[in-house]
Amino acid sequence: MTDNMYIERSCRISENTIWLDGAPYWKGLPAASFIDFAKEAFRLLKVDYPKFYKMDNLSKLVFLAADFLLQQQDKDGIALVMANRSSSLDTDIKHQQSIQEKESFFPSPATFVYTLPNICEGELCIRHQLMTENIFLVDECFPTETIEMYAAYLLRSGKAKRVMCGWAELFQENYDAVLYLVGPNGEKEHTKKNIEDLFR
């Protein structure tokens, strides 16, 4: 089923560490909160993109993983197929707090817009100018087969040139992003086992 499709590159961010293709690339301060870690990692990228600071934490996480993953990459026709466990619950709770009490009922549009998990994909599309296929799924753990099949469909049908797949989970201080590029070049075949290896 997966002939001529390869996992070309991967990036993982969890526990204050960034990994590229399975090797540690950069480590933040061990005790740093996610928000401090994200700021530090963002500075490392040396990009001028003030919108980063306006994003919610899930979008920040995915933005960072994608930026490291796509360094020096051709971005033409990259579709997005992502999933997570907590949807946008981290931001949902913030919006809920702003409407919980009648006396302090001030819902914020800048918070509310992030109460949808696919917004993080929208941010990536804007950042990398990806006018491409997008889907966001929610599951208790990474739905390996579904993501594999969906990505393979997009490539085989010609609806995408490459696909950025992955897990984009963030809830409070627990986060884990595993993004990988599937395309026609590389050595690591796009198989269930090789995908599962990215999560080890």
């Binding site: 817009v113 917004i119 804007i126 990806l130 006018m131 491409t132």
Partner: peptide
């Protein structure tokens, strides 16, 4: 097809590109 505008997170694209 399900293609993104790559334009804005809340406002639709003025050109209807996506």
């Amino acid at each position: 097809g399900a293609i993104n505008d790559a334009n804005h997170i809340s406002g639709p694209s003025r050109t209807g590109e996506g």
